[in-house]
Amino acid sequence: MADPLLSVERVSHRFGGLLAVNAASLSAQPSCITALIGPNGAGKTTLFSIISGFLKPDEGRIRFAGEDVTGEPPHRLARRGIARTFQIVQPFVGLSVRENILVGAHLHHRARDAALNVAEQVGREVGLGAMLDRPADSLTVAGRKRLELARALATEPRLLLLDEVLAGLNPSEIRDIVPVIRALCDRGVTIVMIEHVMQAVMSLARQVFVLAEGRMIAAGTPGEVTADPLVVEAYLGHGAAKKLGAAHEH
């Protein structure tokens, strides 16, 4: 396998007495989609916040493109090419869709015209072309998720961290946005996504990591992890794998 673009090495983070992430490791291969799944409260978003620099890990290292980037602030990581979206969308509500994307586009384009071009192009790419001049707060949930994606993309990232971009969307909206994500990957953007919509994880991800109670309990292809008894137990409770197995035999 090629060198991973991102590798998280035994990272821990503590909120007071709560060990939210416990010696978790993860790696993402370039130009492919890696999924991070796990039950609610497993520490997935905390791990994302650590990778994107919003939280400093108490232990462990993060390497990006071969360099140690542990503890760097978010804006510097963004400059290196790590972009994230937020699980709870954070649009700049007072601005239009175009202006929202423009903020990201300015990261690598100082000139206004160049940045506006990038913003427009990215807006079209995620399917917001018709809504560029609407106020951001007039968008639907699906629209806001697209906007979140567009803003992150406008920074021209090498690594894109997607935190539940499909959550809250209906099946037809999910069908619309999945190809957008796949196209990004085909274009060479490395993606790590936190996702609960398993159908999307199965169809998109090449590698899946499973986090439960702060620990990485499994890693492998989508098929491997869903068959892993530890994973089944993490989601459904102790003894669930055994019961399911017994049910299958009957």
């Binding site: 804006h75 937020f86 954070q90 601005l95 100082r110």
Partner: peptide, 23 residues
């Protein structure tokens, strides 16, 4: 200017601005 765009982004949402590379 870029500075102005970033300044408005900071006004609207600091965390989102940081994630987009704004110091």
């Amino acid at each position: 200017s870029r500075f102005g765009v970033w300044l408005v982004a900071v006004r609207e949402n600091e965390d989102a601005a940081r994630a987009l590379g704004v110091d």
